[in-house]
């Protein structure tokens, strides 16, 4: 009986995390479009509900009632599996994100590795979708995206090593608590910038949205998808963007910690701080979408391998020697 109780409690906790994440994904799509419109002096979605807040829900409803078209020559199993994989991977990663000292679903030892592993699996949804469509544009989009995501993962991995050197633990709560006195964005500012740009590339956001470059590839790997399956790709993509923002705020912006430990700030509950930081990073993402033109493919590869990777490797050496010289290494 007791096991059954624990089981249902866990289910309740998972739902308590997942439903807010899904709702905020819907809201964030709206925010993205609003910010984009704001920069371009347009109104953006403002008709459905107050300020157009229910626009995404209306869109989702439309997708649900649309017919799902499966191309006759596609590999049907993998074709259907691809959006499911994308969406599942985007959601399971939220299990380890700590919203406060106590509010975390799974406080595992290797939390950051888990996040890194799940985000590196994200490429499969895209490759599977692109290949199973059995069509030229999706396939080209999938191949581009595979190369792009694998390249930028490498620099994200090296950036994570920089942070881990300062923390001495792979646990996400420990990473946040290590920033109690000084957020890592200050000593590791260049790494934060590189992480941010790599996160843009990893989530296929503009200016690195080459996998779905509409001028060349129709819609990249999503070309053959319709109805709910397209909506799942779309939800997964935005959940991944939110996740990257959460990762950035945990690694560099002090997670749930308030900026200064003084009266008006420290009464605000911890999860609110994390949400504010995620929103801040997301608005930066949205602004960049509006103001930066798309990269060319060879420029993208050059940036990843010839600039970011060597620079972050050198920074690892610098960080390690600095910590060693001033005897600041954690665990000593």
């Amino acid at each position: 009986m007791a096991e059954l109780f624990i089981f249902f409690e866990q289910i309740y906790r998972i739902l308590f995390l997942l439903i807010p994440v899904l709702v905020s994904v819907a809201m964030i799509v709206w925010l993205d479009r609003r910010v984009w419109a704001f920069v371009q002096k347009r109104r953006g979605p403002n008709v459905v509900g107050p300020f157009g807040l229910f626009q995404t829900l209306a869109d989702a409803l439309k997708y649900i009632f649309k017919e799902i078209i499966i191309p006759a020559s596609s590999n049907k199993v993998i074709f259907i599996l691809a959006p499911i994989v994308t969406m599942t991977l985007a959601l399971i990663a939220w299990a380890v994100i700590p919203f406060s000292e106590t509010f975390v679903l799974a406080d595992i030892n290797v939390g950051i590795l888990y996040l890194f592993a799940v985000s590196s699996l994200g490429v499969y949804g895209i490759i599977m979708g692109g290949w199973a469509s059995n069509s030229k544009y999706p396939f080209l989009g999938a191949i581009r995206s595979a190369a792009q995501m694998v390249s930028y993962e490498v620099s994200i991995g090296v950036i994570i090593i920089n942070v881990l050197l300062c923390v001495g633990s792979l646990n996400l709560s420990d990473i946040v608590l290590a920033q109690k006195d000084l957020w890592f964005v200050i000593p590791l500012f260049p790494m934060f910038i590189i992480f941010f740009i790599s996160a843009l590339a990893e989530t296929n956001r503009p200016p690195f949205d080459l996998p779905e470059a509409e001028a060349e590839l129709v819609a990249g790997y999503q070309t053959e998808y319709s109805g709910m399956m397209y909506a799942m790709f779309w939800l997964g993509e935005y959940a991944n963007i939110l996740l990257m923002c959460a990762m950035g705020s945990i690694l560099f912006l002090g997670g749930w910690l308030s900026p200064i430990d003084l009266f008006p700030f420290n009464v605000i509950p911890a999860p609110i701080w994390l949400i504010l930081k995620i929103l801040f990073l997301f608005i930066l993402f949205a602004l960049i979408k509006a103001i930066v033109p798309r990269y060319r493919y060879d420029q993208l590869m050059k940036l990843g391998w010839k600039i970011f990777l060597p620079f972050s490797l050198i920074y690892v050496v610098l960080t390690a020697s600095f910590l060693m010289y001033f005897d600041l290494l954690p665990g000593n």
């Binding site: 290797v110 590795l113 888990y114 890194f116 592993a117 590196s120 699996l121 490429v123 499969y124 490759i127 595979a146 694998v150 993962e153 991995g157």
Partner: peptide
């Protein structure tokens, strides 16, 4: 986790 990152995330891709 390393198995996931290295083999699934990179080699199998």
């Amino acid at each position: 986790m390393i198995m996931l990152i290295v083999y699934v995330g990179a080699v199998a891709v």
